[in-house]
Design a protein around this nucleic acid. Structure first.
Lengths: 233, 233
DNA sequence: TAGTGGTCTAGACCACTTT
DNA sequence: AAGTGGTCTAGACCACTAT
């Protein structure tokens, strides 16, 4: 793993674990360069990337600080799909297509912050509402965060429920986009022909670090995401 | 202005002007370093930042290429797309297709909580980012909340900005879904053929009541909604 | 004044792709 | 083999902030 990446990991752990709370001063470029025996430019890169990701704020002349957690746009509740279906008075059912360990692709390694080709857990599950597929969940899990992931019966418990119980989730980032589903996804969603799908890509953190990376795909005709937002007054 | 910034501007102009179309090869790090008489690290930074912004794709061993147009946006876009585009350092432009009063259909009357067939304001605007359509905004406005709505120049001020100024917005509800665009929407978005679109349906309240109901449609290939969420415990 | 981040240089070695 | 991007070094000068 690249040197700047090792430093990022180190800093990330400090922040995610809560050892460095909001607004805590982060080690300076020079301090990190000494500590990790690298040049200042390399230490700088680690800090800069964390700043780009919004985890720290950098102030010229003053220092680098842990960014305040953003709770402003609590636009979307992180809900458990099984709960949501139950709340609508419908029946939830899950079909497990895949549940195994596999080597991390470069993309997955990047998202989970683990070495490329290291073992990660991977599951593919279709969630049905009253027998109709409404979500395909493709999920990658950091194995150090949930060692017994592969032994779970995800027809009885959703991955989200299991992971929440294992290590309380503290944060998530999302991307939402509209996509055309692959043939494989059409099969899992039982779509006779492709239709626009809503895709939510979610990374979830616990205090200990990145736990999981999930791609949730919903057929547009069967799914609407709702939210309520109150403006600051 | 910093040197890397000058180079970015230069490259940016090539791309925005269309002189370098999608997938066109971008000058290499070494070429730019020579051309602008800077070190390779400085030329590299310009290219790297353009890559981070999604404007170019870099391939090891091969070169840097102009990326297919896409844009990424945060949940703030839900509030004001012009600000969001400006924050990305891009140019916002609006095309007003429709701006008139019309009788409320039963559906619109229901949403705005006004009598059926009573007069409501209606506007259709395409928002462009660096000349590329990224959102069509179809908006219905409660006329009692913004009496001079029809007299505004929405190429200079977004409806959202105007309405916020008229009657401070206090609340909004959203629905997000994936849809296939109508022929009319394809035209407004300049899509040669339909592609999955992300649609945000939004109702906004002020203290005095429901102000506006908007349907915001984004082409899936050019728009990703991103956000960060902290769990409340 | 001392420390911090922002910018920049002129090299270097590597893995990768293209020819 | 030549060119490309990815990483890294050991310096440098600057503007800014805190003391």
């Amino acid at each position: 793993m690249a040197k700047f990446s090792v430093i990022k990991q180190h800093l990330y752990q400090k922040i995610a674990s809560g050892e460095w709370p909001e607004n805590h001063l982060v080690s300076s470029e020079n301090a990190l360069a000494q500590q990790f025996n690298v040049s200042r430019m390399t230490a700088r890169r680690a800090l800069q990337e964390l700043a780009d990701e919004g985890l720290v704020l950098r102030n010229k002349g003053s220092g680098t600080y842990v960014a305040p957690l953003k709770s402003q746009t609590s636009f979307m509740a992180i809900r458990n799909i099984a709960d949501e279906i139950a709340n609508r008075g419908h029946q939830h059912q899950a079909i497990v297509h895949t549940l195994k360990a596999q080597p991390a692709s470069p993309q997955v390694a990047e998202f989970l912050q683990v070495p490329v080709a290291s073992k990660v857990f991977f599951s593919v599950i279709t969630h049905l509402e009253d027998g109709v597929p409404v979500q395909v969940e493709e999920r990658y899990v950091n194995p150090s965060m949930a060692t017994h992931y592969l032994k779970q019966d995800f027809t009885k418990l959703t991955p989200h429920e299991y992971l929440s119980a294992e290590s309380p989730l503290t944060e998530a980032s999302h991307q939402i986009e509209a996509v055309s589903p692959s043939a494989q996804l059409c099969e899992w969603l039982r779509l006779s022909k492709p239709e626009p799908c809503l895709r939510i890509i979610r990374r979830t953190w616990s205090h200990a670090g990145i736990v999981t990376y999930a791609v949730l795909t919903h057929p547009g005709s069967r799914f609407v995401l709702g939210g309520h937002l109150t403006f600051k007054s």
